[in-house]
Design a protein around this nucleic acid. Structure first.
Length: 277
DNA sequence: ATGGATGTTTCACC
DNA sequence: AGGTGAAACATCCA
């Protein structure tokens, strides 16, 4: 499910459920999802109190004090909560965290792409800089000058560049298409061909779209059952994602779809023209 | 009914 | 450098 707005929605739900709870027991049924040492993971998590759940980009951060549990949902990871005595059978449940309030936090992941790891909290900044995770998409963190400088020095196509998380954290395949439509930029546009003014508009669109999506609780698309906190309605406001063949809200031209860097890419061929070189 | 696509990330290879 | 394809895995749809 998760781009930043969906992860943020999950975070808010989780935070209410688990803040102040102690992990009294845990079971991992799919060891490969644990990226840090498995034995250390289990030993160090037991009896830890979850102070709060934070977020950085698309990563969930369970704050335990000295250590932080980092969870990335990738394509289909979900966190669920059940009364410990009342957990249904499900072949896609891979992690079970019993809490002191009698609830069990369950990690579900149909495709098993999601990851968890335990890191020392004082190494968190290193973790994110090693992964080249850019600033949060906010007015204060997402610096326009830096963004302009990065784009002006790059020959990369703008959509894949925005997806790599280094310019700004949190965009995924849905919202990047929405952002580029709003800013009237072709997904295959070369980064350094964008004017300073366009880059400023692009930054504004990133902040605006992600803020709006958070406000609406993210998008719930082709996902049969809601996960924790995932009752989003942002799908009702999407302009291009999944709108192939439907008229552009601005000009009426049918939305087109093509493949770019392996991802389905939606755009308006009239509003989002490629610059002539 | 088989191939392609799916809200992600990372790596190998031109 | 930058682009593409594939892989991790399971399910759904045309």
């Amino acid at each position: 499910m998760p781009e930043l707005p969906e992860v943020e929605t999950v975070r808010r739900g989780l935070n209410k459920l688990v803040s102040g709870q102690k992990i009294t027991a845990l079971r991992i049924d799919y060891n490969r999802m644990i990226k840090s040492d498995l034995t250390t993971f289990k030993n160090n998590l037991i009896n830890q109190t979850i102070h709060e759940v934070n977020r950085r980009g698309k990563y969930l951060l369970f704050e335990l004090g000295e250590q932080t549990l980092i969870s990335h949902l990738r394509m289909e990871g979900k966190w669920l909560s059940y009364l410990s005595t009342d957990i249904p059978d499900n072949k896609h449940f891979h992690g079970f965290f019993d809490l002191s309030n009698g609830q069990t936090l369950v990690y579900q992941d149909v495709r098993k792409f999601g990851t968890m790891e335990l890191v020392r909290t004082d190494k968190l900044a290193d973790f994110f800089s090693d992964k080249r995770i850019g600033p949060e998409p906010t007015e204060t963190d997402f610096n326009l000058r830096t963004f302009q400088h990065q784009l002006s020095g790059s020959q990369k196509k703008i959509k894949p560049y925005l997806l790599d998380q280094s310019l700004v954290a949190g965009l995924g395949n849905i919202y990047v298409d929405e952002v580029l439509w709003l800013a009237k930029i072709h997904p295959s546009e070369i980064a350094r061909h964008l004017s300073a003014k366009k880059v400023a508009e692009l930054r504004g669109a990133v902040i605006h779209i992600l803020e709006k999506a958070v406000k609406y609780g993210g998008s719930t698309i082709r996902s049969y059952k809601n996960a924790l906190g995932l009752d989003g309605t942002m799908q009702d406001y999407l302009q291009v994602y999944g709108k192939t063949g439907q008229p552009c809200a601005r000009c009426g031209t049918p939305i087109e779809k093509y493949k770019l860097a392996g991802r389905g890419t939606h755009f308006c061929p009239k509003c989002q023209k490629l610059k002539k070189v």
